[in-house]
Design a protein around this nucleic acid. Structure first.
Lengths: 194, 194
DNA sequence: TGGTAATGTGAGCAGTGCTTACTTTGAGAG
DNA sequence: CTCTCAAAGTAAGCACTGCTCACATTACCA
């Protein structure tokens, strides 16, 4: 069942990366992970992970950073950012799709207060923030981009969580996409600069 | 520290209600609760709670139901529901305030898939749903209430979670209220029936 | 060629959810 | 007014968790 990489020597070589990868795999598979399970999977004692992460929270922060970066590159694949209100809908669709594709990771990224002591995580979080505000400023040049970014992000975020938590059905992916599109369209009407 | 109610006899009398109340208290106090801790606090063995709840999830569902009812009566205190787009903002403010006042409970209510086997919980959840759609249908009689209710709920829900998780600062309650109001106003402009 | 810091180990503590076999007791049937 | 039986309690214990400590091994650098 478990891949035991039969590490050659006493030292593992790259335990830290291995643990992160294993954790992502387990989350992907829908299993909740424990540090002990990760250690087992890496073929290492249960105490070893603590050489690389002070505690569970620090590992989770590493995972969150990974997730934030992935989300960013998902949403901003190059430079063609949304330029019209219509394209905003597709942006939101991307956000919600990410949440549904990686539910556990998404919860890790957003379902708890960000550990402020973790610079990398703080920066990754701020980067997402900035991306959103930048886009809103482009799409609605006449308006307050901070307020609109807050509204837009909240809308997408709310849609993501309500689907994730079963408050809105996510059984049919196409229906989800459509629900997101129409919600965004209802609220950011095409061709209006509020 | 712990109130030990010094129960008179062998039987407790109303363990179930006591456990629920104790759990709510602990959540309120910001401590995560465990079934064992609740049992201790009720002055009862660690196995006793399982006479009243099949497992932790069942207790959590009971708490969620409690929270959903409280939210409902918070939001719909009598019949003067919001009748204009402007009043929608205050409605959202109420939603977000609830989340920030009872963060752990809010997470319990919304941070996980609803246990479908729990009729009471399903019904409480549906009631909230209906309330929202009803309001939207009144405020925007010309539009599709389902789409608008989804959008409005998602917006409020997203605002709640982003504040709860520290993605938007919740240090100053007045600033939070104002942020919610302006986000809603930006998106449901007063005197427009989209 | 050392010596040291980084990285691994094993044992163990305190806590968790949950189960099992057993006891106590209140309430209703006879 | 009993007597019984199911509801509601108990103690003990399993498998698991996060985390720590004292100790072992090894890579690397002076």
């Amino acid at each position: 069942m478990d891949a035991k990489p039969a590490r050659p020597g006493y030292h593992h070589g790259d335990l830290r990366a291995t643990l992160v990868a294993a954790a992502l795999e387990m989350l992907e598979a829908g299993e909740p992970f424990s540090l002990r399970a990760l250690a087992r999977r890496a073929g290492v004692s249960t105490a070893a992970p603590y050489r690389h992460f002070a505690d569970r929270e620090e590992l989770e922060s590493a995972l969150a950073v990974h997730g934030l970066r992935e989300l960013m590159s998902d949403l901003a694949p190059g430079e063609p950012r949304p330029a019209s209100a219509a394209e905003l809908g597709e942006f939101a669709v991307g956000y919600v799709r990410f949440a549904l594709r990686r539910p556990a990771l998404f919860r890790l990224m957003f379902g708890q207060a960000c550990d402020d002591r973790n610079d990398e995580r703080v920066r990754a979080s701020a980067a997402l923030h900035d991306l959103l505000e930048g886009i809103m400023a482009e799409v609605f040049p006449a308006s307050d981009p901070v307020v609109l970014a807050t509204a837009g992000w909240s809308l997408a975020h709310g849609l993501a969580f309500l689907h994730l938590d079963g408050k809105l059905s996510s059984a049919d992916p196409a229906a989800v996409d459509e629900r997101v599109r129409s919600a965004v369209a209802a609220v950011f009407p095409p061709s209006s600069s509020p």
